[in-house]
């Protein structure tokens, strides 16, 4: 279990490094790519650490701490990265469901019209559409929105997902 503890420790350090980076960087917006880079650096540190622990022989195989879960611990570290990213994205984005729940929670009880007004106030569609234009997935020409090649790739993935999941269009 020593390897698991080591990987968890490194994950915490990578999260702290990312938080520190977000606090000092002048760039606005999501810093997800920075976290992905930090994660890969620390995965490298983990791999080196595992090799060093083995060479030093500090964890006896017979003890609980020496149980050789090296790959498992590495995978746990790797899977924790998207979990952190989910929470990190939530610090900057509000989903419509969260908005509805928080509004109802704050005001006690609401009618459907009140809920609709709160969602309209947030203007989810225009903010998302502008984001899609800014990220280069959608372009607006003569007042009409079309997909760029990047957007078409996303649409193809969504079509594949619809085929696989067998579900109606989401949203």
């Amino acid at each position: 279990m020593g390897y698991v503890l080591f990987s968890l420790l490194l994950f915490c350090v990578s999260v702290m490094t990312h938080i520190l980076f977000c606090r000092v960087t002048a760039k606005s917006g999501l810093q997800a790519k920075a976290f992905i880079l930090i994660t890969f650096v620390f995965l490298g540190v983990y791999a080196f650490g595992v090799w060093a622990i083995q060479q030093a022989g500090v964890l006896p195989l017979q003890s609980l701490w020496g149980l050789p879960f090296k790959i498992t611990a590495g995978i746990i570290f790797f899977l924790l990265a998207p979990v952190y990213l989910c929470f990190y994205v939530l610090t900057q984005l509000t989903s419509p469901s969260k908005k509805i729940l928080l509004t109802i929670s704050q005001r006690g009880e609401l009618s459907r019209a009140d809920i609709l007004a709160s969602v309209q106030e947030e203007d989810f569609i225009m903010t998302r559409l502008n984001d899609l234009c800014a990220s280069g997935c959608v372009t607006q020409i003569n007042g009409r929105y079309t997909l760029t090649s990047e957007g078409q790739k996303i649409a193809a993935i969504l079509n594949f997902m619809q085929f696989t999941l067998g579900r109606n269009v989401g949203g």
Partner: peptide
Amino acid sequence: TSVRMRLV
């Protein structure tokens, strides 16, 4: 649930 994906 994504609004962006639906718009795409």
